[in-house]
Nucleic acid binder design. Structure first.
Lengths: 188, 188
DNA sequence: TTGAATTTTCAGTATTTGTTGAAAATTCGG
DNA sequence: CCGAATTTTCAACAAATACTGAAAATTCAA
């Protein structure tokens, strides 16, 4: 592997982690190398840095592309395609969550909805369906929250995340105020 | 597979999904079968329902145990061990998130912290380290939020999730009130 | 203790997934 | 168009992961 030590450690770790996620080692490494690079890289740059075959890089890039995780750059007077990752790391995380949701959650929601429409033919099936209903409700609640929060600009999102559970206190406070007779509330 | 049709569909789907996560098909199926069952099951019940080998079930249960996802039941006068899943699906999700965080996030945080302490020896390394710093900050923000929210009782959590991004409006409202001269605020 | 019931381990095998080089396909300047 | 540069595909091979049966280990009632 042809990288400065700091980058190499990072890339190796990402490769390992990659396999704990659904993605494979090489794909993880390719992304890592692009993520820390100070300029967009072409396929052969990646071959050189990671010491893997050209075809493997091609397939890795294809995979990353299908995850919407790449930012292609065209360099004037060079036929090769260069790749980087989005500068905004919040954007990266959004994309990642969106894609994982699409692949790991949405199909389950669809399946659950289908099974919930069927009529159970026996007691065990009735119970199974109740469990599925609970699961469906919870997933809907969480994905609904995400769909909603996803729309916030980064600024707001950070504000929200920084508050953590303290928002609950604010909600209590609001309830108190709003229920006061002759409250201050006017618009919104 | 020896299950009523409704359950079989659910179990098969979970098996498929399992492989998109880090876990394998069988482990996913075992959990699914326990999740929808109306009573705790012993290893041989699972063998019978899924049509896989006894040893495979044993390993699958071991894996699920390491994820803290099982609830063992002792049945009076029966030497076999019976397993179920927690009744509270919120508890299941909490466990799941905790474990994934432990396996997929925490090691990365540790690695990042280590690499951030080193001094970059070159310009590319300096840039790489900046990227790592961004990543580190974002992960800390998100895990901090989670650690905080995790402590809420289910009731509160549902309240929070249901609100979604509307909490931001509430925060604006609060800011308005709090900045009023002679505000109503007293306690808190 | 003993030994039947039950669970776990593990070496061997099967299956799946990842990697490669070579060949085919594409792209684009001339 | 042509053909050099570049990318993609794919069949063969390699590596990793999953699954099994048989044997070892454990558990517990008698």
């Amino acid at each position: 592997m042809n990288l400065p030590p700091l980058c190499e450690s990072f890339v190796l770790h990402f490769g390992e982690m990659g396999s704990r996620w659904g993605i494979n080692r090489t794909v993880g490494q390719i992304y890592a190398v692009l993520f820390v690079s100070d300029r967009p890289l072409c396929a052969d740059d990646i071959v050189e840095r990671l010491g893997i075959s050209r075809s493997n890089v091609s397939m890795g890039l294809k995979e990353l592309h299908s995850w919407n995780l790449l930012r292609p750059h065209n360099i004037q007077g060079d036929r090769r395609e260069f790749y980087g990752t989005p500068d905004d790391i919040y954007a990266i995380v959004r994309t990642l969550v969106d894609e994982r949701k699409k692949r790991e959650i949405d199909p389950t929601l669809t399946m659950l909805r289908e099974l919930l429409m069927q009529s159970p033919e026996s007691e065990p099936e009735r119970h199974a369906q109740d469990r599925m209903r609970e699961m469906h409700e919870l997933i809907e609640l969480m994905t609904g929250w995400y769909a909603d929060v996803q729309k916030l600009e980064t600024e707001r999102l950070i504000q929200l995340l920084s508050l953590g559970s303290k928002v609950v206190k604010v909600l209590d406070f609001k309830d108190k105020i709003v229920s006061l007779p002759g409250s201050l509330m006017k618009g919104k």
